[in-house]
């Protein structure tokens, strides 16, 4: 089924919105009334038709607009793309994985023809068609990871597996929840997770690392992460903090439901074949409080989760300024009805 790609913006006038279908498939992340960090990793197997996990890499109605926003961010700050020299095998592995998945899962939009190592890639929504030699970097205008990373929604980090840990040695990162690729590139697992409150003490990060070091080819995994963002802005990077940080001061009781968005990251991890590296994919979904409240079950759940949130996490996720306003607005939907475990909307 062909998707209808929307014209919309993720900056300045913020015309981004979700259709009814898009709200319905939103990956709501709270199965219970209280939130706590956990290693909530599960196999990234084929989800229900229409869900964000139906395919390995999700393409939705925001695809074209998101790729345009990514291009703007990369033009303004080329440092959002980084790749250390020893990651070239991983770059080609990544290109193969994503091109094959898109061509197979969305044949009306993407195609990949192979004649030995001569590959022809067509991306109809973005009007791209190129022929290149797999493994020969001189046959593409940019590095392979840069080339295909710009044609995908979400951020990607390539992790090198050595010395019993993972190093973030390449990335294309333009829709991040306040972390910096330029700062993190070359860092090890423990170094880049250092700032996460409460998780290190719980041993969560060590257990997650042990699990990921055993990640197998052909058996990808996924988890959901979340935060709250004021305005539907993809680029909430530390580099551009002056452009979005002060938006938090604009939230009031009248506009809270329109401005405050739940930001959910569908994080997936795939082992790559030739490089033995791991792809960390971070696909961002945004939904306003108003759209969440079209499903009363979600509004009640989000109210309870936020009301009982640990103060350290409110601070860490940058919610301090608008947190009470959000809880007050959500309170009117919560009649106290007991909710069963699960993230479903109805």
């Amino acid at each position: 089924m062909a998707l209808n790609f929307k014209k919309e913006t993720f900056r300045e006038d913020y015309t981004y919105s979700n259709s009814g279908e898009s709200i319905k498939r939103f990956p709501f992340p709270f199965p219970e009334d209280q939130y706590m960090y956990s290693v909530n990793i599960e196999p990234h197997t084929k989800g229900k038709p229409g869900s964000v996990c139906e395919f390995a890499f999700d393409i939705d109605e925001h695809y074209v607009a998101e790729c345009l926003d990514k291009r703007i961010t990369l033009e303004q700050d080329p440092g959002r793309y980084q790749a250390l020299p020893h990651m070239m095998d991983a770059q080609w592995d990544f290109l193969e994985l994503t091109m094959e998945a898109l061509a197979q899962d969305y044949p009306e939009h993407f195609s990949l023809q192979k004649q030995g190592l001569i590959w022809t890639w067509e991306n109809k929504p973005l009007g791209i068609k190129d022929t290149f030699t797999f493994g020969d970097t001189s046959t593409l205008a940019t590095e392979p990871f840069d080339y295909i990373g710009r044609q995908l929604q979400g951020d990607f980090v390539l992790l090198d597996h050595r010395d019993e840990t993972l190093y973030a040695d390449a990335g294309i990162v333009t829709s991040q929840a306040d972390w910096s690729l330029a700062f993190n590139v070359g860092m090890s697992w423990r170094e880049w997770h250092g700032p996460v409150p409460r998780a290190t003490e719980l041993g969560v990060m060590d257990r997650a690392l042990k699990y990921l070091l055993n990640l197998q080819l052909g058996s990808p995994v996924r988890r959901l992460n979340w935060t709250m963002t004021v305005n539907p802005r993809l680029d909430t990077s530390p580099e551009n903090y002056p452009h979005w940080g002060s938006d938090r001061n604009t939230v009031n009781a009248d506009n809270v439901a329109d401005l405050v968005h739940l930001r959910v990251e569908l994080q997936t991890l795939f082992r790559l074949p030739r490089s033995n590296a791991i792809v960390f994919s971070i696909r961002c979904y945004l939904i306003s409080l108003k759209d969440i409240a079209t499903y009363p079950r979600w509004a009640k759940r989000l109210h309870r989760v936020q009301k009982t949130m640990h103060p350290d996490l409110i601070e860490y996720k940058g919610m301090t300024k608008f947190h009470p306003l959000m809880v007050d607005w959500l309170a009117k939907f919560d009649d106290g009805e007991a909710l069963t475990v699960g993230t479903h909307a109805e």
Binding site: H86, D89, H161, R162, L217, S219, P273, S275, N276
Partner: peptide
């Protein structure tokens, strides 16, 4: 599927 517990240090 192939598993690598003995990879080259790139």
């Amino acid at each position: 599927y192939p598993v690598n517990l003995f990879s080259l240090a790139k």
